[in-house]
């Protein structure tokens, strides 16, 4: 009893001590808001202080970076509705394109930073139960009658759209594949799905915590994080024969930084993501770094994998209209009689 009281006091005391100086600094410094998608919480929790140190060394000023996380589409909508994001770091280019179309971001945003403005890449993998009891090796195994597949709703989750496209890419590349056969594959695949969570994290929770399903279609980084969080005795990662190169892009929100006068800091923040230091943090969080040397250091984490890109689908505008917009393939799959 007295022990726990002591512990509590110590914790409260320690926290109060930590909070006090932080509170004092906040008043004078620049504040940025980074509006991001769900799985990047842990990443930016480490990136932000690192950038803070670099920024202070360079300018002598402190900087606070606030984080907002939700589904990628929801976040784009929030920025559009007036959430004062200095930078957006989203799951797919289509969501930043939506901001560009409405004048919040310059149309040429994707050319402003290296590598299509995506400082890291990722891909889509399978997370299965330890020992892979259902013997899932590749996409066709997902159609086995006793296999339940967990993936979030592509209408609300950026990651789910990558999942969908990866599966579609595989189906399109089978010998003798036609548009109809690919559609049939997708239809059958989605009928193996018992729950459509609204976000990638919700889907991972359903799979790991609730014990739902046999395979989780997930970001590579999410799969590794889940393995790290819940242990390799809970789940293991399976790399399919073909996947998709996911490029989660970043951009400064021009309208906001021009109004707030934070363009320099916001740009520096995004450029920092391409530095060796940030790329190492990125790799540590299981995203695929762009820097070849960092990639080389962590090579054993990232098995070589045949990947298509969004360009193979003709870019996001076409993919969006074809698969995810109202009346697209996803809607048709769930509409009876079509």
């Amino acid at each position: 009893m007295s022990h726990s009281t002591l512990t509590r006091r110590t914790i409260i005391g320690a926290t109060a001590g930590l909070l006090a100086p932080a509170g004092r600094v906040v008043a004078a410094e620049t504040t940025l808001l980074n509006v991001s998608y769900d799985p990047t919480r842990e990443l930016y929790r480490e990136i932000n202080p690192a950038f803070g140190t670099v920024w202070r060394e360079k300018t002598g000023q402190g900087i606070t970076i606030n984080q907002s996380h939700d589904g990628s589409g929801a976040q784009a909508r929030a920025v559009l509705d007036g959430l004062q994001a200095d930078v957006v770091t989203l799951a797919l280019a289509a969501d930043i394109d939506a901001l560009a179309r409405r004048g919040l971001v310059a149309m040429d945003w994707q050319q402003r930073l290296p590598d299509n403005s995506a400082p890291y890449t990722s891909t889509i993998v399978f997370l299965v139960r330890a020992g892979n009891p259902k013997g899932v090796r590749d996409w066709p195994d997902l159609l086995k009658p006793d296999v339940a597949v967990i993936t979030p709703n592509p209408k609300t989750s950026g990651g789910a759209r990558w999942n969908f496209l990866a599966a579609q890419a595989w189906a399109e590349r089978q010998p003798g594949a036609t548009e109809a056969s690919a559609e049939d594959f997708m239809r059958r695949l989605l009928h193996q799905v018992p729950v459509l969570d609204t976000g990638a994290r919700g889907a991972t929770n359903s799979f790991v915590q609730r014990g739902l399903g046999d395979v989780l279609l997930a970001w590579e980084n999410e799969a590794w994080l889940a393995r790290q969080e819940f242990g390799s005795d809970a789940c293991q990662i399976v790399y399919p024969s073909l996947s998709i190169l996911a490029e989660p892009p970043v951009s400064v929100v021009d309208r906001v930084v021009d109004k707030k006068g934070t363009r320099a800091a916001a740009t520096a923040y995004l450029e920092f993501l391409y530095t060796r230091q940030a790329q190492t943090i990125i790799a540590r969080h299981y995203y695929r770094p762009r820097d070849p040397e960092v990639m080389g250091q962590y090579a054993e984490r990232y098995p070589a994998l045949k990947m298509v890109t969004i360009q193979d689908f003709g870019g996001w505008d076409i993919a969006q209209a074809r698969y995810f917009a109202d009346g697209g393939l996803f809607d048709r799959i769930f509409t009876p009689g079509q």
Partner: peptide, 23 residues
């Protein structure tokens, strides 16, 4: 707007923590 530490009320924080695997 889900800004951590700024516009998160308790019910929203619950969902966020849930999503952080912080049960």
């Amino acid at each position: 707007g889900h800004v951590r530490g700024q516009t998160m009320t308790m019910p929203l924080q619950i969902e966020a923590l849930f999503n952080d695997y912080d049960w």
